[in-house]
């Protein structure tokens, strides 16, 4: 019975094999060419093959050598940060940087486990938005809508 001795390394090996395989499969329509005249698929194919090779070694070693376990995944932080980025990215051109920045900070505040003091967060968000406008719009003159008009 084969058992995984190092879950972290085994996962990494599988990830590498997966990336290499995706690279080779989706790159199949790229001409490989020859050494004399390299096609667009030449270099990527070699690299993907090497990635798969290393993936195999890393995963294989993980069956033999003891190693650390994979830490538990916590969904809360990553979920709220992604929502905050997405909200900012899709709103900034519609409602301007002030409102999207405040929204982003408030959403991001919920990424941590402790209770959120909403008043503090709102005040901090407003102040930060103000500084961002000052630095990026006025001092650095970046093209960026401040409000929705």
């Amino acid at each position: 019975m084969i058992s995984i001795k190092s879950p972290q390394d085994f996962g990494a090996g599988v990830l590498f094999i997966l990336i290499g395989a995706i690279g080779i499969l989706t790159g199949q329509d790229l001409a490989f060419g020859s050494a004399r005249s390299m096609g667009p698929g030449f270099f990527p194919t070699i690299i993907c093959a090497l990635i798969i090779l290393i993936g195999l070694i890393v995963a294989g070693k993980a069956l033999v050598v003891e190693g650390p376990a994979i830490e538990r995944i916590q969904f809360r932080p990553i979920f709220f940060l992604i929502v905050a980025i997405a909200a900012f990215g899709f709103l900034i051109s519609k409602v301007g940087v002030v409102i999207s920045a405040i929204l982003m900070i408030v959403l991001a505040a919920y990424a941590r486990r402790e209770k959120v003091n909403i008043l503090e967060t709102l005040i901090f968000a407003a102040a930060t938005a103000f500084f961002i406008v000052l630095i990026f719009v006025y001092a650095l003159e970046q093209p960026m809508p401040v409000w929705w008009w």
Partner: peptide, 18 residues
């Protein structure tokens, strides 16, 4: 840190937007 990280996140997003 509760104030620091949202500000860092915002900086990252603004950076990408610019």
């Amino acid at each position: 840190y509760r104030l620091l990280y949202p500000a860092i996140l915002l900086f990252c997003a603004i950076g990408v937007y610019s």
